[in-house]
Simulated scan of single mutants.
Amino acid sequence: MKGRVLIVAGSDSGGGAGIQADIKAVMAMDAYAATAITALTAQNTLGVFGVVPVQPEFIRQQMKLVLDDIGADALKTGMLHDVPTIEAVCAEIEQSAAGVPLVADPVMVAKGGHRLLQEDAVEALKRRLLPLATVITPNIPEAEVLSGREIRDEADMQAAAEAMLELGVPAVLLKGGHMEGEVLVDLLVTRAGTERFESSRIRSRHTHGTGCTMASALAAGLAQGMSLSAATVRARDYVRAAMLAAPGYGAGHGPLNHGVRLG
């Protein structure tokens, strides 16, 4: 086991996304996962039916205790829910984890459509969290909100990613899963240029937690000293393998098989 990842995110009672998916993904990458839970959700593959937020000061306490004792080689943030949560998490990162690589997954809406980030928290996310991040991992709807641009094709993806760089984040991994077509394209955009990743689309309803899983696998790679590019390649391969091996559980957006191992 190599690399310590502190995950700051919400819990998913169905086990397919959130903290549960994050822990599984980090462990599959042979890294160590610690957590600070930001919210409890009552959900399954059909949707999110309830959210109970954790008090911001308790979120900070979770983070601080882990960082003071176990430490972290990378951070991953997921569901942050509201402005007080964002402010608390960012303050603790600045105080206890300055300089530690941060993968920020700007979770806004659950797969089933339930809003996981309050509307008035978007500006706080852009102002406070993004400048602390090493890389952000938005999907297309999230990128449209953060960039203020409509995304219809790959050129729009590039333009939106460049707009997000202007918010102070060094790198954007813009995931193209919401685009139509048989070919899926992700773009890793930095000020130095763009790296394009292409793969055939997997037609499956078992896609719950793909974003959480990708971001956590990416964070594990950074924690292990991999370059951002190499960590992205491995994370994409892992998510694809986990989708192909999905167990078929649930009547809605089913979970992945996080137990798959890359050869």
Results as ranks from 00 to 15, higher is better:
residue 187 L to W: 00
residue 190 T to A: 09
residue 157 M to W: 04
residue 156 D to A: 13
residue 135 V to K: 01
residue 155 A to C: 09
residue 130 L to F: 13
residue 147 S to F: 04
residue 130 L to C: 05
residue 178 H to F: 02
residue 182 E to K: 13
residue 132 L to I: 08
residue 143 A to Y: 02
residue 138 P to S: 07
residue 160 A to I: 09
residue 141 P to W: 10
residue 142 E to A: 03
residue 146 L to A: 09
residue 144 E to L: 05
residue 157 M to S: 02
residue 189 V to D: 03
residue 172 V to C: 06
residue 187 L to G: 01
residue 188 L to P: 00
residue 158 Q to V: 13
residue 148 G to T: 10
residue 178 H to E: 07
residue 185 V to D: 08
residue 166 E to Q: 14
residue 182 E to Y: 09
residue 131 P to K: 05
residue 181 G to P: 12
residue 185 V to E: 12
residue 187 L to E: 00
residue 156 D to Y: 01
residue 139 N to H: 04
residue 149 R to S: 06
residue 145 V to R: 11
residue 183 V to L: 15
residue 158 Q to E: 15
residue 178 H to D: 07
residue 145 V to Y: 10
residue 171 A to W: 06
residue 144 E to V: 10
residue 145 V to D: 07
residue 192 A to W: 00
residue 177 G to N: 04
residue 127 R to H: 10
residue 160 A to M: 06
residue 157 M to R: 02
residue 176 G to D: 04
residue 131 P to C: 11
residue 177 G to I: 04
residue 186 D to T: 00
residue 178 H to S: 09
residue 132 L to N: 09
residue 182 E to H: 11
residue 138 P to T: 07
residue 166 E to N: 13
residue 188 L to V: 00
residue 137 T to Q: 07
residue 158 Q to H: 12
residue 128 R to Y: 13
residue 131 P to R: 11
residue 171 A to S: 13
residue 188 L to R: 00
residue 165 L to V: 14
residue 162 E to C: 12
residue 146 L to K: 07
residue 144 E to T: 06
residue 191 R to M: 06
residue 156 D to N: 02
residue 180 E to A: 14
residue 173 L to M: 10
residue 181 G to K: 11
residue 184 L to I: 15
residue 149 R to D: 00
residue 167 L to V: 06
residue 127 R to L: 14
residue 179 M to P: 02
residue 154 E to R: 15
residue 139 N to K: 05
residue 126 K to Q: 15
residue 137 T to A: 09
residue 188 L to D: 00
residue 133 A to V: 02
residue 185 V to W: 11
residue 186 D to C: 04
residue 165 L to D: 10
residue 158 Q to G: 07
residue 148 G to I: 08
residue 129 L to Q: 11
residue 178 H to Y: 08
residue 143 A to L: 05
residue 178 H to M: 03
residue 180 E to N: 11
residue 148 G to A: 12
residue 186 D to G: 00
residue 126 K to A: 13
residue 165 L to E: 14
residue 192 A to M: 06
residue 155 A to Y: 08
residue 149 R to Y: 06
residue 139 N to D: 05
residue 140 I to W: 04
residue 173 L to P: 00
residue 185 V to M: 14
residue 153 D to L: 12
residue 166 E to C: 11
residue 180 E to C: 03
residue 191 R to P: 02
residue 165 L to H: 08
residue 138 P to R: 04
residue 142 E to W: 06
residue 191 R to E: 14
residue 147 S to T: 05
residue 132 L to C: 12
residue 134 T to A: 10
residue 144 E to H: 09
residue 173 L to A: 01
residue 137 T to L: 07
residue 153 D to I: 10
residue 151 I to D: 05
residue 179 M to Q: 14
residue 164 M to L: 12
residue 191 R to T: 04
residue 157 M to K: 01
residue 139 N to C: 05
residue 166 E to R: 13
residue 165 L to P: 10
residue 157 M to C: 08
residue 131 P to S: 08
residue 181 G to Q: 12
residue 146 L to S: 04
residue 162 E to W: 07
residue 156 D to S: 11
residue 165 L to Y: 09
residue 190 T to E: 13
residue 182 E to C: 10
residue 170 P to T: 01
residue 127 R to M: 13
residue 166 E to W: 09
residue 133 A to K: 08
residue 160 A to E: 08
